Amino acid sequence: MKYRDVLAPLVLLCSLHAALSQTPPPPTPAPAPTEETLTLRVASRVVALSAVVRGKDNIPVQGLTKDDFELKQDGKDVPIRYFSEASELPLTFAILVDTSGSQRTLLSDEVLGSDVFFQTMLGRPQDRAMLLRVDAEVDELVAMTSSPNRLHLGLLGLYSRSSTANGTRLQDAIYDVARLKLSKQTGRKAMIILSDGGDNGSRKSLDEAIHEAQQHNVQIYCIEYSVFTPGAFTSGGIGIRRSNVDEGAKILKALAEQTGGRMYTVGKMSLRSIYEQIGSDLRTQYELGYTPPPDLKPGSFHRLELRTKDRKQIVQARNGFTFEP
């Protein structure tokens, strides 16, 4: 018998013995809760506010810290627990364009302005936008996307349809977008509305639309864009009176003021300049949060007041919320 014929079985036996004698590795422990998980649990009761601070010449103020702000709930001071400059957070926004008969001649300008805005604001993969058409129906032309090119193509769907031009379900659109779309997003959330403010056919009231935006910390920016000449204006058989235009402006102003956004009027400023100011706001926001008192009753409304210690500065933020545990 050759030497290698004896050695081979011995080597195999030694290998098996060594393998069997090794202590099996301990089971992998379950991962401990991560900081992100803990943060989410804590944040379930956090009231968040997105804020824009304006100083001299209406220019947004940057570089503030938590200690520069004062926050009150129902007139009582509350400590700010969470704070960040919102440029660090994802941005999600929806543009709602009124395509009813009263807006027919304005749509080409709105398409161009919105296209530039999409190209400007969507520079990061975490930033997303959607586009909706509002008349007697509410149509989602482009779902949430980070692609300016998809939104560019979606803008081709902004035209006035004679079959649905006699209605404007603006309040329904705001309610649904805030509740069904933006509520699911994290970070900064905004809605931009191009309309004369008139509503015809909505099932939801103005208060319900504002409530839903407030609940999900959605800032609404309203761009009042209307074709009005003294007397009555007629487009496609639709008459618009001065009182209706004034009422629309009041609606847009309420939507903006109560959600922490702003209202603009095309004519006083160009649409391009308005979009530039909105973009500046969205890039220079602050995100603040606090934990409300534990004794709040479900369904109770609570007034919020956020300001800076520098009383010359103006703060834009939502002015209230309804407690829904």
Score class of each variant (00 low, 15 high):
113 G>N: 01
63 G>A: 02
141 L>M: 08
72 K>E: 12
64 L>W: 02
84 S>W: 02
10 L>P: 06
7 L>I: 11
131 L>G: 01
17 H>I: 10
72 K>A: 11
171 Q>D: 12
182 L>E: 04
71 L>R: 03
105 T>L: 11
75 G>S: 08
47 V>M: 08
241 R>L: 14
183 S>H: 03
211 H>W: 06
1 M>V: 08
202 S>Y: 07
206 L>K: 00
228 F>I: 11
321 F>S: 14
29 P>A: 11
199 D>M: 08
150 R>L: 11
102 S>A: 09
140 E>A: 10
127 D>C: 10
60 P>C: 01
166 N>P: 05
15 S>V: 12
230 P>V: 01
124 R>V: 11
162 S>D: 14
152 H>E: 08
103 Q>Y: 07
174 I>N: 04
296 L>W: 12
207 D>C: 01
83 F>K: 00
68 D>M: 04
4 R>D: 07
243 S>P: 01
212 E>R: 10
281 D>V: 13
158 L>M: 02
111 V>S: 02
2 K>D: 15
168 T>D: 08
287 E>Y: 14
193 I>H: 07
77 D>G: 06
118 F>N: 12
283 R>H: 00
175 Y>K: 06
303 R>L: 14
221 Y>P: 02
320 G>T: 03
208 E>D: 14
224 E>I: 12
271 L>R: 00
116 V>D: 11
40 L>P: 03
143 A>P: 09
220 I>F: 01
180 L>R: 10
69 F>V: 00
122 L>S: 14
253 K>D: 05
174 I>V: 12
2 K>G: 15
257 E>H: 03
